[in-house]
Design a protein around this nucleic acid. Structure first.
Length: 646
RNA sequence: GCCGACGUAGCUCAGUGGUAGAGCACAGCUUUCGUAAAGCUGGGGUCGUGGGUUCAAAUCCCACCGUCGGCUCCA
């Protein structure tokens, strides 16, 4: 008799052949009613699965806090959607329908394009299937028999799936097994019956290449979402709406940060005054911190002749991403796609001694790269962008301390902007240049630097670039999303290709170590990300307008002007509103613009020499003397505090 | 680049073949006002661009451009 252990640590013996459902029943009738599956030794299984050996078991019930139960629910819902689509469009060939973050999709091969207008019919059919509450019935076949069955059905995708599967093939029928019943090759598991799907919605349809291969047929991918209850579904739709409000494209327009114009071209960013101010502040901070750490600021041209890009290998490797050349005096010139060659030329313009190293060059360098039209996305994916680029040229002995400094700089940047982050060590990919020893040495240096810092990291096996292993930092924003952040690469090829050397103490040339890194990525992507991270409510030091100064009526306008002069003299970016409006609408407008502080001045304030302070959350902070408020603001700016919050 | 949807006033959007609309924003006037959108009046659009169908096109068809959601790719 198998002995089972429950999550609370208790264990008991059960009849051989008892199922997960039987266990749920033993524990209690309420659990039995709500159970949708089980987890045996970490593997999610059907409620009807027999228990044949000693095991750890957990009964799964629908819950938004349990990823396993959500997957079970969503994967089952994908089947129901597939059945609905097949019944509406019998020529549909099913491909693959997994659960994903917040929902599921099903890829189908169907020549008639599905449109959002079809969703209502699909949802209606799904609702019928759910209402019928038909059981998901699993049956298995030997490989050969199963393959013969699939061959007879002639769906090449399912044959493909089956060929990849191990062992027996399993099928799921919804309802009684018969010629007319809906069934699908599937590994499972599923909820016990269709009626167990709480709430669902068909969300969108898009194209997706079979197996992600551009040369393969493009299928239709229909996305849906499913939740334990209607309330959960509504909460999810609400969250989507909230995320939409934080979208940097929405806020970028609303707050006057940037725009993109068809007349000028897609993927090309125009920084408006507010955006320009934010960028200016970020860049100043960036430059200050680099100068403090011994960097030299350099500038390199926006175009360069083909000679450099042949030598660098860019034309060969990145030619597809570079724009067509322009002819200047019979020689082809290209818009620069990267800053590195310019920095190498600066290094090579002189003989470098080991005494000169390390040389650290940084540049906010604008580059242009061809990105396919379908991939452009606001400020986050553009065709012209400014990288915060830097190269450190050093000796092998200096590499460790340089990496230490870079990790420290990276950490400062992330903390200042309020990001949590995760580190990854990306190791040698399949296609690589250089020797194994070089790779091992460089990878070790990166790993040791993270260990010295006590920085926890995961290894991204084979995730390095062909010329370098790297440290990748993924930053986590205020909504819990991960973004590609800083990256540090120890370049193993550039020194060879460009003959970048220094003269050692032995008076002989040695290959220079080159560290290639970025701490913000690009100004466009970084600030686009910041907009979403802060939901448009920039902290005091970054807010393009820090203070709105509003008079209660014209009677207080003169006092307001007086306060304005003092705020401006203190270097605070302040806007005055002495319009003939009531204080309510003035405050409302300032909050719409997410200005950190709103100062109300009326006759009372004028009499006592104070300002009435409100933050953008709507909270009143009472009256303060003008100097005290100025001191408070200057402190926030000097500390680059993340306050006041949204 | 591929699949699908969308493109109407500065913004958000309504308008399914018959003289272009609303709210917000903007301007003027009234109100001089105490903390989450005052009232009235007014200006503003060759309905993304170009073809076509029709007596008549924002509306139907075609092409192109752009945007959005995905796929692929990426700072």
């Amino acid at each position: 008799m198998p002995r089972i252990t429950l999550p609370d640590g208790s264990s008991r013996e059960i009849q051989t052949g008892a199922t997960v459902a039987d266990v749920a029943d033993m524990i209690g009738p309420r659990l039995a009613r709500s159970a949708i599956g089980g987890k045996i030794d970490g593997e999610v299984v059907d409620l009807g699965s027999p228990l044949t050996r000693d095991c750890q078991i957990k009964i799964l019930t629908p819950s938004v806090d349990d990823a396993d139960s959500l997957h079970l629910l969503r994967h089952s819902c994908a089947h129901i959607m597939a059945e609905a689509i097949c019944s509406l469009f019998p020529e549909t060939k099913l491909v693959y329908g997994p659960p994903v973050e917040n929902g599921f999709y099903y890829d189908v091969d169907l020549d008639r394009p599905l449109t959002p207008e079809d969703f209502a019919a699909i949802e209606a059919r799904m609702a019928e299937i759910i209402k019928a509450d038909r059981p998901f019935v699993r049956y298995e076949m030997d490989r050969d028999e199963g393959m013969r069955k699939l061959q007879a059905e002639g769906n090449r995708y399912k044959i493909d799936n089956a060929e990849r599967a191990e062992g027996k093939l399993s099928f799921y029928v919804t309802g009684e097994r018969s010629d007319s019943a809906f069934e699908d090759l599937c590994r499972g598991p599923h909820v016990p019956s269709t009626g167990r799907i709480g709430a669902f919605k068909v969300m969108q349809v898009s194209g997706a290449y079979y197996r992600g291969d551009q040369k393969e047929k493009q299928l239709q991918r229909i996305y849906g979402t499913a939740w334990p209850t209607k309330k959960d579904l509504e909460a999810h739709l609400f969250r989507l709406e909230e995320a939409r409000k934080r979208d940097h494209r929405v806020l970028g327009k609303q707050l006057g940060i940037f725009s993109i114009h068809e007349e000028i071209g897609p993927g090309l960013i125009h920084w408006h005054p507010r955006g320009g101010m934010i960028r200016h502040l970020v860049e100043n901070f960036w430059k200050d911190e680099h100068l403090k750490r011994g960097y030299d600021i350099v500038f390199t041209p926006h175009i360069a002749s083909e000679r450099i890009y042949r030598r660098s290998g860019h034309l060969e490797k990145y030619g597809d991403m570079m724009y067509s050349p322009m002819d200047i005096d019979g020689l082809n010139y290209y818009l620069k796609p990267m800053n590195c060659p310019g920095h190498y030329m600066i290094y090579l313009s002189d003989i470098r001694s080991y005494r000169d190293l390390p040389i650290r060059m940084c540049e906010l360098g604008t580059v242009y790269r061809y990105e396919p039209s379908g991939t452009l996305h606001g400020m986050l994916r553009v065709r012209g962008f400014t990288q915060d680029d830097a190269h450190t040229f050093c000796t092998p002995e200096q590499l460790g301390q340089e990496l230490d400094m870079l990790l420290e700089l990276m950490d400062l940047m992330m903390r200042t902007f309020g990001y949590q982050y995760k580190a990854y060590l990306a190791t040698r990919p399949e296609k690589y240049l250089g020797t194994l020893q070089e790779w091992e040495r460089a990878t070790n240096e990166l790993q040791m630097a993270m260990e010295r810092r006590g920085l926890a990291f995961e290894v991204d096996e084979g995730g390095g670039v062909f010329y370098a292993p790297k440290i990748d930092i993924k930053l986590i924003d205020s909504m819990g999303r991960e973004w590609q952040g800083p990256t540090i690469q120890v370049d193993l090829q550039a020194a060879k290709r460009f003959e970048i050397t220094y003269v050692g103490a032995d008076n002989a040339p040695h290959e220079t170590i080159i560290i290639h890194r970025t701490v913000l990525g690009s100004m466009e992507r970084f600030i686009g990300g910041l907009i979403e991270h802060y939901g448009g409510a920039f902290p005091m030091w970054l807010a393009p307008v820090q203070i709105l100064l509003a008079s209660v009526s014209e009677k207080s306008a003169d006092y307001a002007r007086e306060v304005l002069a003092r705020l401006k003299a203190a270097g605070l970016r302040t806007r005055l509103d002495v319009s003939h409006e009531k204080i309510g609408p003035k405050k409302h407008a300032a909050r719409q613009e997410k200005i950190p502080y709103i100062l109300v001045v009326g006759e009372k304030e004028a009499a006592e020499g104070t300002v009435n302070v409100n933050d953008r959350s709507g909270k009143s902070l009472g009256n303060q003397a003008v100097d005290a408020f100025i001191a408070h603001c200057r402190k926030l700016v000097a500390e680059r505090a993340l306050e006041p919050g949204a």
